[in-house]
Design a protein around this nucleic acid. Structure first.
Lengths: 248, 248
DNA sequence: AGGCGGTGTTGATTTAGGTCAATGAAGGCG
DNA sequence: CGCCTTCATTGACCTAAATCAACACCGCCT
């Protein structure tokens, strides 16, 4: 079973050999420091689709880095309404919102069979005090998320359905490029309902927009994979229909 | 001029004597450590309404804490569309999104005549390496913002106009309570256009919803101040009209 | 006072996209 | 293999809120 042995090999890889080290926590760490971080990381067994890594309300014991596969985070508010807060790909960190009061404010769920690096926060915390470079790295990663959240609010707030879908596709494509993966093909592992929820649209509308973009020869949709045929047109649509802000 | 002298007195106050120390950076810091932080903080001259503290794209040189007054942060995307990302009140920190790449990703503007504590990031950074408790405090504050951003996405995404306004009012009220200020009266220092922008509505709709809530005896609006008459009804409206999520 | 620019409210109309409902395609399984 | 469940697409209709437009209010200045 060659697929499995390849998987096992990947699992035994250390941060120092991880292809994602420049996106993930290890970036900017000295070899020596990196080894200390490595010792904390547990890259455990593969996780099946729909498995919950942690649940909203759980105590913060670990944060997770996506090694391969993908995940989503979901938040349920007081009234029981559900909102997907983000999709996560290799190199992304899950759990940052738990540091506030040592408990998770959203749940994390694997979108497909995936591997995650599991990092115990108490040990991480201790190591962070020891390694200024790791501290800086963490700060930057959190700040980055903050800034991306801002971008998301802009999308959610000011763009119409076509703009939202277009932005999402471009965003996913860009993130693939960052990871050195082919950026013209964007896999949509999540369900249409997830997409719709994330973008605050109804799944029917997602469907409609996708087919509209396809008919306009801008993308090619095949169940869980979108091909970007005309990136410029997509960019153009991602801004069209955005509201003009009233003068302050 | 008693008002002025009182103001001057406030300005000379140190973190240790600041009434906001438990909300702001100093929380959980030892007296000795707090003194070190204090030495970094510059609580300068009062800042007039509409003054920009920092602009999107500026290098990150300082972060700011609101001492009194209020501020908003605004982000302009590639296409020139503007989105207000948040309103900030005494004890809140501005500038966290700048740590990612040492530049600000949004602009910060005072909503009224206000005082801000100005903290140089390079010195802060050095101090953070020295004081684990400060490091933890910063992490928690950032994480808290992250988690609140999630709440905001939920509001923006899933609530109708009445729900958004109601949520905003309750949120502002809650934040006032946290600061020990009367929570039934919520001042709306920002313009209607700002409110509308923040909530992704048009200002006409903001107006309409406010008058609707007023007619229902739930709030009492007077130009830049809202009185909450029936908090339960407001809570009820803040969830009504929220979408039911499709099952994943 | 009177004029004026900025700000807020209200009314009439339009439309994007939500809702309801039916159909189609795809994967899992006895 | 056909059945069933889940997921995605398409159509017809309707509602919330955006848009367009008029007007009211308030402070400010000469």
């Amino acid at each position: 079973m060659p697929a499995l042995s390849q998987q096992m090999q990947q699992l035994s890889e250390t941060c120092s050999h991880c292809s994602l080290r420049y996106l993930c926590l290890p970036d900017h760490l000295e070899t020596h420091d990196l080894e200390k971080l490595e010792r904390l990381v547990d890259s455990g067994a593969p996780v099946a689709a729909d498995t919950e890594l942690f649940a909203q309300g759980d105590g913060l014991t670990h944060i997770y880095a996506v090694r391969d596969g993908s995940a989503k985070t979901v938040r349920i508010d007081e009234e029981g309404f559900e909102q997907i807060l983000g999709f996560y790909y290799p190199g992304d960190i899950l759990g940052f919102d738990g540091f506030a009061d040592q408990k998770h404010h959203c749940s994390a769920v694997a979108l497909e069979t995936s591997h995650f690096c599991r990092i115990p926060v108490d040990q991480l915390d201790a190591l962070v005090d020891e390694l200024p470079s790791l501290r800086q790295r963490l700060t930057r990663l959190m700040s980055q998320v903050l800034s991306e959240d801002g971008r998301m609010m802009l999308t959610l707030g000011r763009k119409d359905s076509e703009g939202r879908i277009s932005s999402l596709l471009l965003g996913l494509s860009r993130r693939r490029a960052l990871r050195g993966m082919p950026a013209t093909t964007v896999p949509l592992n999540m369900k249409r309902a997830d997409l719709a929820n994330f973008l605050s649209m109804r799944l029917e509308t997602v469907s409609r927009v996708l087919t509209r973009l396809q008919r306009a020869q801008i993308i090619k949709v095949s169940q869980h994979r979108v091909e970007i045929l005309d990136r410029d047109a997509l960019r153009e649509r991602s801004s069209r229909g955005a509201w003009v802000a009233d003068q302050s």
